[in-house]
């Protein structure tokens, strides 16, 4: 089955069985290895991508469901050398440790820090991160960075 979609701004066609997880197409066919297959059951958020602007776990999304849609991966969020505000804030807050969860975190925070998406409060940001697990950092610096972006301090 041929599936057409827009991937990081580029029209692409894939010949894959319709139930193929989106993450496998991204990683194996497109060599976009930013999204990480960590739990493969939608709990950890490390494989998060934007589908038509909405954070979506690519491990549980069959490729057929994004036919005709717009998919943005963490690689697509950073085309230039200068990191966007979310990535810059996480870097400035020294939030990164092993880094495996961050591609997914960055995708969700990119969405969450859009105006009107989330209150600029620690509690609201933590609620917004419910679908993400980080095993290294203990989260607080990620929240600090998100808050800084929302408050325009970045």
């Amino acid at each position: 089955m041929t599936i057409r979609l827009t991937l990081n701004g580029e029209e692409r066609e894939f010949a894959a069985p319709p139930m193929t997880p989106l993450i496998d197409v991204l990683r194996d066919d497109c060599h976009l290895t930013g999204a990480k297959p960590v739990c493969r059951e939608g709990f950890c958020g490390a494989c998060m991508v934007l589908v038509d602007g909405i954070p979506t776990v690519s491990c549980l999304t069959p490729i057929a469901l994004v036919e005709g849609g717009k998919v943005e991966t963490v690689e697509g969020l950073t085309s230039a050398d200068t990191p966007p505000p979310v990535q810059a804030a996480l870097e400035a807050h020294d939030a990164v440790q092993c880094g495996m969860c961050f591609p997914g975190m960055v995708v969700s925070l990119t969405h969450l820090t859009q105006p009107g998406e989330c209150d600029a409060s620690r509690a609201a940001i933590k609620a917004g991160l419910t679908g993400h697990v980080c095993r290294c950092t203990g989260y607080e610096r990620i929240v600090d960075a998100a808050l800084a972006v929302m408050e325009g301090r970045q």
Partner: peptide
């Protein structure tokens, strides 16, 4: 000094190649 990590940016941009990648 509170030196920043040199590996942070690539990790944040999804460019770091771990063994699984």
């Amino acid at each position: 000094q509170n030196l920043r990590r040199r590996d942070a940016r690539d990790k944040l941009m999804g460019r770091t190649r771990y063994t699984i990648d």
